[in-house]
Amino acid sequence: MLKFWKKKPAETPPPDATPAPAADAPAAAMPHDADAASLDTPALGEVLSEAPPPAEQPAEEQPFEVPDADVAPARRSWRERLSGSGFARGLTSLFSRHPKLDDALLDELETTLITADVGIEASTSLVENLRRRMHKREFADASALLAALRMELVQLLTPVQRPLDVSGHKPYVVLTVGINGVGKTTTIGKLARRYRDEGRAVLLAAGDTFRAAAVEQLKTWGARNSVPVIAQGQDADSASVIFDALQAARSRGADVLIADTAGRLHTQGGLMDELGKIARVLKKIDAEAPHEVLMVIDGTTGQNAVSQVRQFRQIVGVSGLVVTKLDGTAKGGVVFALAREFGLPIRYVGLGESATDLRVFDAEAYVDGLLPASLGQG
C-alpha cells in the first residue's frame, strides 16, 4: 500500500534564476516498505560494538560564512597550503636535526610518521622497508632516504587517486555523509560551485533537517552559486526531502543532485538507520542511486577518522572520501592511514576556506606539499 508525502518541498531559487517549469512532475508516492525498520542492514548493536569511543566533536551550531561566488582569491600551491601541517613540520625538523643516515634516523622517522597520524601499521611497514634498503646500502645519504620515502608515500596514495566522474548517470546522485562538524555542508556548496563552473545543471537537497542552520547554510550556498535548493522545514523527514529532490532533478533534466544529510556520530544507531532508509527510497526511483556515497572527514581527527569510515561503510556503503581541513594545523598523515586501511577513492581534499581550495586529490602534489622543499615542486 502506498502513501504520499504530506509536506511539499520548498525550493529556494537562486537570484535571477529562471522559474521552474509549471509542468514539473509532482512528488511520487513514497513506498511504504522504505521504513527504517525494514532495512537490510547489519544489526546496529553488532556493528557498533567494536567501535572505539569517538573523540569529542566540534560544535556545528555556530555562525557560518559562505564565500562570495564572485570573488576568486589567488590560488595557492599545495606546498603553501600544506607546509604548516604537523606532518610537514615534523619531517622538516627531523631531517634538519638528524641529517646522518643511520638506524637512529629511521627510528625517529617512524615516530614522526605515527605522530602525524599515518598509523602504527603503515608507519612501521614504511620504515622497515626503508631500513632493509638502507642496510643493503641503497642510499648514499639522508637525502637519498628522503627521496625513497617520497616514492613510498606516492605509491601508497596513487591507487586512491581516482577523481569523481559524474557523467555516467543523469541525474548523478551524490549522497554526502559524515559526523558533526567535518565541513559537510560547506563541501557540498563548494562541489556545487565546481560542477556549475563545468557547465553542469546542479540541484541541491537540504536533507540535514535536524539543524535549521544547516538548511539555511545550504540555501545561502545555492543563492551565491545560482544553484536551486530543495528543502522542507526543520525536523522534516530527510528521506522525503531527498526523494522529492530526485523527482525534481529528473523532471528538470539536472545533471547532478547533491544531497546533504544530518551530521551524526557513527555510534547513533537510529540516525544511521536513517541513512539506510534514504538509500532504499532513492532506489525506488533509480535502482542505481545513490551513485556516489561521499563521506566527508575532518583531517584533524586522526585515527578516529579510520573508525568513522569503517562504521559508515558497513551501514551505507561509502564509495568515496573527501578529507577536509588539511591546511594549517592538520597533521595530514590520516590520508595515508585511510588509503592503506580501505583503498577507497579520495575524491577531494580541503586545503582552505575558499571554493577553489577544494582540490581534486593529486597523490604526487600532496606528498610533495608535505615533504621538505628540496623535494618536489609544490
Rank of each mutant, 00 (worst) to 15 (best):
T124P: 06
D286G: 03
P13I: 05
P26S: 07
Q314R: 15
G350C: 07
I315Q: 14
P31F: 13
A22Y: 06
R79V: 00
A363F: 11
A231I: 05
L44T: 08
R250C: 01
G86T: 08
R359T: 01
G178D: 11
T41D: 11
I120F: 14
P159L: 09
D197R: 11
G90D: 05
G332I: 05
M272H: 07
D273Y: 03
K184L: 11
M134L: 11
P228D: 04
Q234W: 00
A10T: 14
G343Q: 11
S319R: 07
K283I: 03
E56N: 01
S354R: 07
K6P: 00
L218K: 04
T261Q: 05
Q234N: 09
S374A: 14
D286I: 04
R193D: 01
F139Y: 15
L106N: 10
L145S: 06
A27Y: 07
L39A: 14
K325H: 06
L146H: 08
T185N: 04
G332R: 04
D40G: 08
G302C: 09
Y366R: 02
L130A: 10
L130Y: 01
L91Q: 03
G45A: 15
G189A: 04
A72G: 00
L113P: 09
L156D: 04
G269Q: 11
Q303C: 07
D357K: 02
H32G: 00
V154L: 10
T176L: 05
A34D: 13
A231E: 10
A116K: 06
L257P: 07
A337P: 01
A330K: 10
G350L: 01
L109H: 00
F95Q: 04
A330S: 15
V227F: 04
R347G: 00
A236K: 04
F243Q: 09
E121S: 13
E288Y: 06
I297S: 09
E341T: 15
K170F: 00
A236H: 06
N304P: 12
L351G: 07
A248P: 00
V296T: 14
G276E: 06
F95W: 08
T301A: 15
G332E: 04
A17G: 08
G183L: 03
V154K: 12
P53D: 14
S85Q: 09
H135N: 13
R162E: 09
G233A: 10
A192P: 02
P31H: 15
V241R: 05
R224D: 03
A17Y: 02
L275E: 02
F4W: 00
S93Q: 14
